[in-house]
Amino acid sequence: MRARALLTVERVGDRSVVRELRSQSPLSLVPRRGTAATLDPAATVHLVGSATTPLGGDDVELAVHVGPAAKLVLTGVAAAVALAGTSSLTLRFTLDEGATLQYLPEPTVVTARADHHTLLRTELHETARVRLREILVGGRAGEQPGRYRGTTRVATGLGSCPVLHQTQEFGDPALQASSAVLAGNRVLGTEVLLWGADGEAATGESWALTPLARRGSLATAVGPDAVSTQRALAQAVAAHPGWAESSSERTLRSLGMSENAVRSTTEETP
């Protein structure tokens, strides 16, 4: 099935609102609603439904535009399982001045007879921030992966200066086994961070965080399973000063709120 989808988020006052949302089967976009959503300055949209189970013949394209100063969190609700046959997913993200986007999908599992292609293109203003996560799992437990080929390109600023351009492949046994490529690991996790300050490179047993040449950092982790790889990836991301700063700010904000709450209760006690 061929689907073309569109999502536009704009800043209104101190909130980000979904301005335009068009999706068609097999892709569904579901904005988070309710009280929690109205308190959050960022809009959250879930990728759900059959979009997360690409089948042979599925050809899905989603264009996302985050307007000036707007904030969007785009998440998946369940692992995407690429099934038998040729399928493709194209994501085009455009971020205006001061916009932020966190793309945090669940892992993509490339099953034995899949032939799945993805393209993730992000163009962002030099003041915009983006965080792009991708977790690839080569086959279900005990299964050899099918074919996967995914390209990520991130470009920034007026001249569309490329900061990252990478194609990852699964399904070629020689590459999978090579100690230069996946070293026999089944899972690859990456996270692109153009999110404030980029510090020194950092590294652990199965992960690394490295500053990119022009702007941003790339966190990479490999592992035998999704859980350990995600944990390693989280360690790499935690080493990023820009991200750490903004997450500690968020923590402080939430702490501040609860401290106030605590104070008000204790004041009332006597």
Partner: peptide, 8 residues
């Protein structure tokens, strides 16, 4: 960001 991280 430039190449001069970490090797000043």
């Amino acid at each position: 960001m430039s190449d001069d991280h970490g090797h000043g």
